[in-house]
Amino acid sequence: MSTASAPLLSVERLTMRFGGLLAIDDMSLDVAARQITGVIGPNGAGKTTFFNCLTGFYKPTEGSVRLNHPQRGLMRLETLPSHEVAHKAQVVRTFQNIRLFPKMTVLENLMVAQHNALQHASRFSLAGLFGLASYRRAEKKAIAKAIGWLKRLELIDKANTAAGDLPYGMQRRIEIARALCVDPLLLCLDEPAAGLNPRESAELNDLLKHLARDEGIAILLIEHDMSVVMNVSDHICVLNYGRKIAEGTPTHIQQDANVIKAYLGEDDADEELHAEAKP
């Protein structure tokens, strides 16, 4: 299933407890580099909590999250604050309920994502304040990168529009473009296809495959839209009540008895999986 080399990210015995509620129960998962790993499960299974633990927004009660960073070596993500997970470990996430900077333009949103590099170049704003050449070069580079992603995600026409004024599907793409501007090693997407129409979903599929194969970005994907998950994932992990109930390739998952039971038994809304599961 997974590649022979060491995984990019390995989650070991992760547990997250909120008072009496066990949101994640002893979960382990390996995420391979350059691959798309899907995380699925009924509503309330603990998928977003899992993301929050990975990216420093929650401190897990137990367990470890290790990242094999090509330049910085082994990093323990559970010990880092959220901004260092993004900045130093280059594990970048998006949000289930889109979190853009709504009054800022699309281009500005992508510039904010490059804050650390630019802030360093502006030398505590002094070089920037006096418009020194070193800062102007860094700014040009950052703009070029932002424009590059905007062009590839077909958002360039909207570069000067306030992000909050754009339609929902476009905002989803802007959030992905903004995350890409942070230079992620691992991109954690929380339901990127939610609210997209079938054509937009198909475009998202192509984009995700392209990012993993050609850009070498590992992707961790939470998704309810089975047409996306089953199509793009190399590997799928199924959560239910905070526990991992199955793991494997999409075909393997579609036939797994536990998964079918979890979906049919818990939530009528997610019948697509059942439909998909029958060959």
Binding site: T55, G56, F57, P81, S82, H83, E84, V85, A86, H87, K88, V92, R93, T94, F95, R99, L100, F101, P102, K103, M104, E108, N109, M111, V112, A113, Q114, H115, N116, L118, Q119, S122, S125, G128, L129, R178, A179, V182
Partner: peptide, 25 residues
Amino acid sequence: KLPIGRAWEAMREDEIACKAMGINA
């Protein structure tokens, strides 16, 4: 118009998103 100024405005818009972008709030 400098990175710090944009970060101020981004902080006003959404602090959690700022953290997810690697900004030290």
